[in-house]
């Protein structure tokens, strides 16, 4: 177990820089999720920590050691790959034991660790099968077992759930979290799925275009997005963005700093009924009502604005398309941003 420290890490391919100075401190035993759209550099960053990609500049520490120039094998990390990367010609048992054999562990110790991991992951019945004879979920467990037996300083996960179907994904998500709590190994997890990110992480790192947009707990990132990008990326349906000028005269704007020129409002914070106390009232026309089980999504057009907005509400309001609406929002629910910098005002 160890801390993992990234200090102004940069990566260039030829003249093109793809990671523009990333600094993250991961505490011992912490579960940190790197999240961002595809091509944001999150996988590259993880592979740099693993030693599969070279570090162009900056300092990478695992524990006290600077590992910039160490081979992957010497970094004391284990990685779970997106396609699991199980050795197809070896039994599950040998897949788990391979890393220990290479490191010259004693036979008895290998057997003990394999048995322990197999019990923990409930794969003991499949130890003598080949990966090809296992289902997707079972392969996923074997991949985690292979990381587990090594008892490394850190786990690295590269979108490990993206090849599973929706139901299995949720189940494995819970299991990964439970397992990590139990063994307490520092973990760095890459995903493009924000739900996965919000549910798994002790802390989130939102990446965009090779730059860190925000680092914080899932609550911090959701409740107080630091940039317009984070506001739009975290949360479904995404946050609505409304110009401040348009809001003038529609209610109290004291909470919005003078510098802000755009305001974000979460679809959940737009109410069909007026809340008690101070609030803004926004006139709109309903374009489409989309029932989604226990809740409904309303796609509306705010009067005098080109872009559509989304409202999320509980239950199924009896409204026809084209209905006139008054949407209410409390001033605390406004997220002020400066458009030019993209940052929170």
């Amino acid at each position: 177990m160890a801390t993992v420290t990234l200090q102004d890490i940069r990566k260039s391919y030829g003249p093109t820089e793809v990671i523009h100075g990333v600094s993250i401190d991961i505490a011992d035993g912490e579960f940190v999720v790197l999240v961002g759209p595809s091509g944001c550099g999150k996988s590259t960053l993880l592979r740099m920590v693993a030693g599969l990609e070279s570090v162009t500049s900056g300092t990478l520490r695992i524990g006290e050691r600077v590992v910039n120039d160490l081979e992957p094998a010497e970094r004391d990390i284990a990685m779970v790959f997106q396609n699991y990367a199980l050795y197809p010609h070896m039994s599950v048992r040998n897949n788990l034991a391979y890393g220990l054999k290479n490191r010259g562990f004693a036979r008895a110790e290998i057997d003990r660790r394999v048995a322990e991991a197999a019990a923990m992951l409930e794969i003991a019945p499949y130890l003598d099968r080949k990966p090809g004879q296992l289902s997707g979920g079972q392969r996923q467990r074997v991949a985690m077992g292979r990381a587990l037996v090594r008892e490394p300083a850190a786990f690295l996960f590269d979108e490990p759930l993206s090849n599973l179907d929706a139901k299995l994904r949720i189940q494995m998500r819970v299991e990964i979290r439970r397992l990590q709590r139990r063994v307490g190994t520092t973990s760095l997890y890459v995903t493009h799925d924000q739900i996965e990110a919000l549910t798994l992480a002790d802390r989130l790192v939102v990446l965009n275009g090779g730059v860190v947009e925000q680092i914080g707990t899932p609550e911090e990132v959701f409740d107080r997005p630091a940039t317009i990008f984070v506001a739009g990326f975290i949360g479904t349906p995404p946050m609505n963005m409304v110009p401040v000028d348009w809001l003038r005269g529609k209610g109290e704007l004291d909470a919005v700093p003078a510098a802000a020129d755009v305001v974000g409002i979460r679809p959940d914070d737009l109410d069909l009924e007026a809340p008690p106390g101070s609030h803004l009232t926004l006139p709109a026309t309903l374009e489409l009502l989309e029932p989604a089980g226990a809740e409904s999504h309303l796609y509306v057009r705010l009067d005098g604005l080109d872009q559509p907005a989304t409202v999320r509400t509980q239950g199924r309001p009896a409204l026809a398309d084209g209905a006139r609406l008054a949407l209410h929002v409390r001033p605390e629910a406004l997220h002020p941003f400066v458009k030019a910098t993209g940052r929170r005002a």
Binding site: G51, L52, A73
Partner: peptide
């Protein structure tokens, strides 16, 4: 798959060992 070679590298197998235990089989 390249990821198999990478997994073996992380698993502590050197170049020669990687060849004989993963690539050749």
């Amino acid at each position: 798959p390249k990821s198999l070679i990478e997994a073996a590298a992380i698993d502590g197998a050197g170049r020669t060992r990687r060849f004989w235990t993963i690539v050749f089989p």
